[in-house]
Write a protein that binds this DNA or RNA. Sequence first.
DNA 1: TATTCGTGGCA
DNA 2: TTGCCAAGAAT
Length: 289
Amino acid sequence: MDVQAVVDWFDANARDLAWRAPGTTGWGVLVSEIMLQQTPVARVEPIWLTWMARWPVPSALAAESQGEVVRAWGKLGYPRRALRLHAAAGVIAADHGDVVPADVDTLLALPGIGAYTARAVAAFAYGLRAPVVDTNVRRVVARSVHGAGEAGPPSTTRDLADVDALLPADHATAARASAALMELGAVVCTARSPRCVDCPVLSTCAWQRAGRPAYTGPSKAPQRFAGTDRQVRGLLLDVLRGSAEPAAKSRLDLVWADSGQRDRCLDSLLVDGLVEQTADGLFALPGEH
DNA sequence: TATTCGTGGCA
DNA sequence: TTGCCAAGAAT
């Protein structure tokens, strides 16, 4: 595919996202990438702005209690991300001079940072050539290169190689291309109702040339939520987020009727370190009592 | 490799 | 109304 065409399109059409503002630090990029995992841009932006004002450097976040960080995470979802980011900030402050590393392998060693986030930070914060593979890029490659309606099951090794083959040699342009491919998937080459009329690589798209065939690969497991432990954990944690003082179990019991599931979920929150029990048997966010 | 882990908007 | 989807990581 013609990656340069995507970069040119990006130059003219990039969204004006808060973390793309000139002067955003590696820390700012890292926080944005963690928050954006499985979470829409619109929900992240206000929280990110709050965090940057409150904790402008890793050591500032690391000095905060876990509970306060979980509370400030609000309803972004997957609150273990907040705990892991807090832990990563501690390592960055202690071992890396309070500066987010630029090296992919060093980033990968930090809690909560995986194959995507490590390369996203290297590319977007430091302008390095690193194949950034997220759900958007996987879809763009599946369509424009492989002619498939959507990406098949992820394979880090194969996905990285696919994107690596597309990136130009020099760091700055490659980093720009990584951002451009993601943006194309997020704005034009979307999962449903792709806006192909606006696509900068329409003329060379393998999926388009094949007549936009429907996806034929294995179907992904349906993503349920209602009635799951995820929902119950969310309800339990929401009580503690909204409470300045530790709460009695009787208060937590109100959020879900099934006591077996309720207790199992509370226990898993304790195991995860998202909730702590005080000496007098009450429940609270960690480190706040 | 397949599951688990929140939350909410939208077609 | 409800299933699908949203810049994944850890296990």
